[in-house]
């Protein structure tokens, strides 16, 4: 091993989100990675920090009608509609039959009422296979009801407060970008007891077929993901990082280590990779290796050393004038 490789190997990429310890600061985004098993033959499970499972609700949901996907410039629209078998079946079958993997497993909970979130979280979080919970209060694809929570700071606070009482495990609240002031929602979630925030869910969007004059998604509207939303996501992380003290999982169009670094520098403690897995399932491990090399080349020992660096001096930007480096 050469000197520089040795330096890279010594770089610490582990991070903590509340009580959740991740060997790598990379999560696979909910709904993009199935149960993880679908990708296990193509990706190195030992090089993935965690997998956020597909969202589960109290009752079974068939999901939206096809088409559920549309490719768009630098991204894609999706409107899956929270297809899932409901919490009873999910615990009995889907979760019980999971193959143990080295990654951390984060259950994702969606719902249509405050009580549903609490009920599903309590049942899911009680299972030993689940290391943490992500609250999907921001799904844009379920007739506006699902996203209502994350679009209303007070409602977000209510949901998180109630859910907080049901589990000691790390609670990550996934925020919507489809709001006027994401920092206000973030503060409410933090005050209500969230351990971390996932920033951001997809951006609402639509595509129309000019041949048929009809919307191209079965659900009419969808959620936009991919590099098209990356600058929106980076700004959201930047603003949320200024508003809260809890860690942030940055996400939105991350395809390369450079993309991931933007999020860390904006204030994310970890990143989540979603749509990029549809290009090449080896992208997450390449990002991990890229982070190691980036930090190693700069003589940095841990990923934590760059978190939020772009946020330093924000309030007093003028003071930085003329400073080099």
């Amino acid at each position: 091993m050469s000197g520089s490789q040795a330096a890279h190997a010594a770089v610490d990429l582990s991070v903590k989100l509340g009580r959740l310890e991740l060997a790598y600061p990379t999560l696979m985004g909910s709904g993009c990675y199935g149960s993880g098993e679908e990708f296990a033959a193509f990706a190195d499970p030992a090089k993935i920090g965690g997998v956020v499972l597909k969202s589960v609700t109290q009752r079974p949901r068939l999901g939206n009608r096809a088409p559920r996907l549309v490719a768009t410039p630098s991204g894609m629209l999706n409107a899956i509609g929270l297809q899932n078998p409901g919490i009873d079946w999910y615990l009995e079958h889907d979760l019980a039959e999971r193959v143990p993997r080295p990654w951390k497993t984060i259950g994702s909970v969606a719902g249509f009422s405050v009580d549903e979130y609490a009920y599903v979280t309590q049942r899911l979080a009680a299972r030993p296979e689940i290391d943490a919970i992500e609250l999907n209060v921001s799904c844009p694809n379920v007739a506006a009801e699902g996203e209502t929570f994350a679009c209303d700071p007070k409602l977000t606070g209510r949901v998180v407060r109630l859910v907080r009482d049901t589990t000691e495990k790390t609670l990550i609240v996934k925020l919507s970008p489809n709001v006027t002031d994401i920092a206000a929602v973030a503060r409410e979630a933090e005050d209500a007891g969230a351990d971390a925030l996932a920033v951001i869910n997809t951006v609402r969007g639509m595509a129309i077929d000019v041949g048929t004059w009809r919307p191209r998604l079965g659900n009419v509207t969808g959620g936009l993901s991919g590099p098209a939303i990356r600058p929106i996501a980076v700004l959201a992380v930047y603003e949320v990082a200024r508003a809260v003290k809890i860690p942030i999982v940055g996400q939105g169009g991350i395809e390369t280590v450079t993309d991931a670094l933007e999020f860390f520098l904006a204030g994310a403690t970890a990143v989540s990779i979603g749509t990029a897995n549809f290009i090449d399932p080896r992208i997450p491990e390449r990002i991990v290796e890229g982070l190691r090399a980036y930090l190693g080349e700069r003589g940095l020992l841990s990923i934590g050393q760059i978190v939020g660096q772009a946020n330093r001096g924000f309030a007093g930007a003028h003071r930085c004038e003329g400073r080099e480096g």
């Binding site: 709904g31 990675y33 199935g34 999901g63 996907l69 490719a71 899956i80 749509t275 897995n277 549809f278």
Partner: peptide, 16 residues
């Protein structure tokens, strides 16, 4: 024929 994203069963985008 359906639009795929992942092609491996992970995203549930191509249902019938």
């Amino acid at each position: 024929e359906e639009t795929f994203a992942c092609g491996v069963g992970g995203c549930w985008g191509c249902v019938v």
